[in-house]
Design a protein around this nucleic acid. Sequence first.
DNA 1: TTGTACGCGTTATCAG
DNA 2: CTGATAACGCGTACAA
Lengths: 333, 333
Amino acid sequence: MSKITIKELAQKLNLSISTVSRALSDSYETSEETKKKVKALAEQLGYQPDLYASNLRSRKSKTIGVIIPEITNSFFSLAINGIEEIAREKGYHVLIYLTHESYQQELSISRLLLDGRVDGVLMSVSSETTDVKHLADFNERKIPVVLFDRIHDGYKTLKVGTDDYQSGFRSALHLIQKGCKNLAYLSISKQLCMDKRRMKGFLDAVKKFEIRSRVVYCHQDDAGNEKVLSGLLSAEDAPDGIFASVEKLGVAVYEVCNKLSVSIPEKLKVISFSNLKMAPLLQPPLTTITQPAFEIGKQATVALFKALKNNFIYEEDEEIIIRSELIVRRSTE
Amino acid sequence: MSKITIKELAQKLNLSISTVSRALSDSYETSEETKKKVKALAEQLGYQPDLYASNLRSRKSKTIGVIIPEITNSFFSLAINGIEEIAREKGYHVLIYLTHESYQQELSISRLLLDGRVDGVLMSVSSETTDVKHLADFNERKIPVVLFDRIHDGYKTLKVGTDDYQSGFRSALHLIQKGCKNLAYLSISKQLCMDKRRMKGFLDAVKKFEIRSRVVYCHQDDAGNEKVLSGLLSAEDAPDGIFASVEKLGVAVYEVCNKLSVSIPEKLKVISFSNLKMAPLLQPPLTTITQPAFEIGKQATVALFKALKNNFIYEEDEEIIIRSELIVRRSTE
DNA sequence: TTGTACGCGTTATCAG
DNA sequence: CTGATAACGCGTACAA
């Protein structure tokens, strides 16, 4: 019972291979009667069409690839949730690849996906990525690529993200309104378009109100961040308000404050991009800019399927923006 | 440049298809010279062997399937991290499927994976699953299956988990030592072997010390859990110590305590299975039983590759136990 | 060392 | 409505 093929079904039913094939695919040019017989036997013997054979003919893999920097990040796990939901609905399969924020990994994974394994790609570029030539290869293979969250200027396609500039602006404004006089923006990457936009919004607000501010470039590794933040917070002119551009950095701030006994919000007000379900349960509850992660994943997938269905690839820039929400909690009181 | 095939390479080099094929696979019966020429051209034209064609011949997909209940759960995202790492190392691809704790989904996903798409499967069964007949189908197809974390009695294979019984026992003991007189065990499923073991450990400790206790069966949905826990905690004889058998329930307890202003640890001591990085930052810091999630994912994958490499499937029960750690924090002080 | 020819399981085309 | 036959791209006996 291990490998039933169409051929065996045909033999047992005294039909030709092609008739069986047609019956199984519900072709209109087959009698209802044979369809029933064939399907019954197929069901009974547990027939499964061979994936590789049928893909070889049809040139479709019914699979999409998802390339993300990391998965232990509530934004990405929620996004995957959305992606998987839509994909399963459409009968597609989802391959997951993690770059761990490494450009090299991103490169080699991209290369792997050129072998016809996937019909389309969803991607969030790594924070190291500056050059996006590897993405052009997908165009040559007519594989549509949709970028989400970690979008990149250098590659033209459909992009799904949030209102980064506005979020940065609102965050700075909120801190200023709460009385901060000395702000810091924690950046995760000098290259990422998303980071630049958040920063731009933040800096514009700061400039408008003529508040002192600085930008702190952080690292990928926790140890490095602890060092940077410890330095920052124990300095003479330590900031009194921090905006963490990504969740990881918000958590790092809490950890360091905990260690150094810097009290939030009295000495330092903190606001962070985050999708942590536990934000309200932290000590103190964390004010967040929360992205609709699930929805972003979903929209990106819907857009990808639009391309897949109509057999085109996105060659011009186009953006779908889904707003983030500022949720005020005790950390900025 | 979109679809270079072996045939085109052959034409351009005035060689036969088979020679090119051999050259690319480094066959010993090919001259070094032709190998070089072929490989050079292949590289230059960006040749990628067609996955489906070659799999159709070789009957190997170089892909494993991972079926888990949910991804927004720090245990599973860490585990996937470990899985992906090993898989990539071995040149394998990883397909992800989420059951959302639904038995029906698990069933239909399992069926999908019988079509030769994957060489092996890693799985954590859903909390609804009682019947595991669907897993037997993998055996018939000679597809090895390794269970991790959410293991199930009914299916014989290699299983990777943690010391559930001991963890349950230790947790109850810890609460008792901290002075609790009235304990509650929060269960996520009546079927799961893992849950039963944790509960058994818990109940054995309780019995040994003759402490009052009860078992509370919780739900999959947050709303349902809020209701159950609100009832539990506002009752006359509310427990003074809780052991949450999974992270989700630990978080739910915090949320309800927050809402009802039940103070932890004064009125209620809480200990929970959890891989939350933020456990120390919660209000108050949460005492956890922490599983080596990354390592569990890794070991499960290593075991799967052992089967894959030696071309066998696990047909007898065998367990790999990786110990969890009790990390005491303020929630049980 | 290289080329010829066939088959993997399917789907698509063309007759009948 | 059904059957024979030719691809899809690759790998591999077998022959040269």
